[in-house]
Design a protein around this nucleic acid. Structure first.
Length: 113
DNA sequence: GAATTGACGTTCT
DNA sequence: AAGAACGCCAATT
């Protein structure tokens, strides 16, 4: 029973996202070994309301705040990101690459080993 | 209990 | 190269 479900793994990784950094659903999914389950990551975020998961730091691969619609306000997600020093314009993160936090690169496949 | 949807991304045509 | 379809797992209807 040491194996965790995809959902739980997503929560863990999402929680490890550093302050002022962002990542993509696909990046997390890929890190978990299921690049094609990016949708599940999004679903997990939907349940993230029950967890302490900073879902505002997770965007799609283009850097667009696709899930901002699920937040309390209309541009709450954007406000949170800007609060961390990330510039957002038209629901899209500026310099997404610069702020991109890749779990595989940062954690180095040494986290869930 | 079965079918559909859901914060996406990859692969095929 | 551009567009369409599929895949993944879980939850909701």
């Amino acid at each position: 029973m040491t194996e965790k479900n995809f959902f739980d793994k997503v929560y863990e990784v999402a929680r490890l996202i550093p302050h002022g950094r962002v990542t993509s659903y696909g990046a997390i999914a890929k890190y978990l070994g299921a690049a094609r389950s990016a949708r599940m990551v999004g679903w997990a975020m939907n349940n993230s309301h029950a967890k302490d998961v900073p879902a505002h730091r997770v965007v799609n691969r283009v850097g667009v705040l696709t899930g901002k619609h699920h937040f309390d306000g209309t541009n709450l997600m954007q406000q949170l990101l800007e609060n961390e020093g990330i510039k957002v314009e038209d629901n899209q993160i500026l310099d997404f690459q610069a702020h991109f936090w890749d779990p595989m690169t940062e954690l180095g496949s040494d986290f869930m080993k």
